[in-house]
Simulated scan of single mutants.
Amino acid sequence: MIELIRQYWQNYLFTDGFNTTGLAITLWLLVASIVLGFVLAVPLAIARASRNRYISGPVWLYTYIFRGTPLYVQLLLIYTGLYSLHFVHSHDMLNSFFRNAMNCTLLAFALNECAYATEIFAGSIRETSHGEIEAAQAYGMSKFKLYTRIILPSALRRALPSYSNEVILMLHATTLAFTATVPDILKVARDVNSATYATFQAYGIAAILYASIVFALIWGFRKLEIRLLAYLKPQGH
C-alpha cells in the first residue's frame, strides 16, 4: 500500500497530471450537491409543510419519486436517458449541458439530496412549537417575518442531527459518480487496480479517504450541534 501511495498519491488526492481527480472531485461533488440541495430544499420544505394540498401536493410527488427510486437509476436517466430525447440533443444549450458527465452527475445528486432535505426540513417545520408561533403573531409579525425569524431558524437547528446523517449518506452516494466516468476517488481506485492488480491496496486507500471525510464531517456537525442546540439541553437548578 505504501508503494501505491507513493506512485499514485496525486491521482487519489488532486490530479492525474492533466485533469482534476480523486479527493478533489469527490469533495466538489459533495459540497456542490449539498449547497444546491439545501438552497432548493428550504423553500420546498415550506411548501411541503403547507396545509394547502395544491401547494404541498406537487412537492410531495417530487420527493416521493426521488426518494422512492434508486439514485443510480436517476443518474442513468439524466446522464443517458435524457440525452436520447430528440428535443434535448437538438437544442444547443441542452445538448451542451447533458453531454457533460459532471453536469449530469451534479444535477442527479442535487435533485436527490434536495428531496431528502425537503422532507427533513418540512418535518422540523411542522414540529415548531405552537407557543413560539403564537408569541410571534401576538407580537405582530407578518408571515414572512414569522418564517425568517422564528420558524426557519428554529426548524433548521432542530433538523441538524438528521441532516448531518443525510450529508454523510450523500458522501457515500458520490461513489456512483464513476458510472458516469467522473474521476472521483472510486474511479481512481478502479484505474489503479486495473494498472497494478493490487485490489486490496487500491480500494483500501479509497476506503481510508472516505472514512477520513466521514470523521471530519461527524466532528464538524458535532461542534455545530453543541453550539446551535445548546438551548435544548436540560438546565440545572
Rank of each mutant, 00 (worst) to 15 (best):
L4A: 00
R6V: 02
W9M: 11
W9Q: 13
Q10D: 12
Y12M: 01
L13M: 13
F14G: 07
T15C: 11
F18P: 02
F18C: 06
T20I: 14
T20S: 11
T21P: 03
W28L: 13
W28V: 01
L29F: 15
L29N: 06
L29G: 08
L29R: 08
L30D: 10
F38Q: 04
L40S: 05
V42I: 15
L44G: 00
L44C: 14
A45N: 08
S50E: 05
N52M: 06
N52V: 07
I55G: 03
S56E: 03
S56W: 04
W60A: 10
F66R: 12
G68Y: 12
T69P: 06
T69H: 14
L71T: 12
L76W: 12
Y79R: 10
T80C: 02
G81D: 05
L82K: 05
L82I: 07
S84M: 11
H86F: 06
H86D: 13
V88W: 02
V88S: 03
D92H: 13
L94I: 02
N103I: 09
C104I: 01
T105Y: 08
L106H: 00
A108S: 15
F109L: 15
E113Y: 08
A115R: 03
A115N: 06
Y116C: 02
A117G: 00
I120N: 10
F121K: 02
A122F: 01
A122G: 04
G123F: 09
G123C: 02
S124Q: 12
S124H: 01
R126M: 07
T128A: 10
E134Y: 09
E134L: 10
Q137Y: 05
A138R: 00
A138L: 11
M141G: 01
M141R: 10
S142I: 11
Y147R: 01
T148H: 04
I151H: 04
P153R: 12
S154D: 11
A159V: 09
A159D: 00
Y163F: 15
S164Q: 02
N165Y: 04
E166C: 01
H172R: 12
T175A: 14
L176C: 09
A177T: 12
F178V: 05
A180G: 11
L186V: 11
K187M: 08
V188A: 07
V188Y: 08
R190T: 07
D191E: 15
D191I: 09
V192D: 12
N193R: 03
A198W: 00
T199L: 04
F200M: 14
A202H: 06
A202W: 07
G204M: 03
A207N: 06
A207K: 07
Y210M: 01
A211F: 15
A211E: 00
S212F: 10
L217D: 02
R222Y: 05
K223E: 06
L228A: 07
A230Q: 13
Y231F: 14
Y231R: 08
K233R: 14
Q235R: 13
G236E: 13
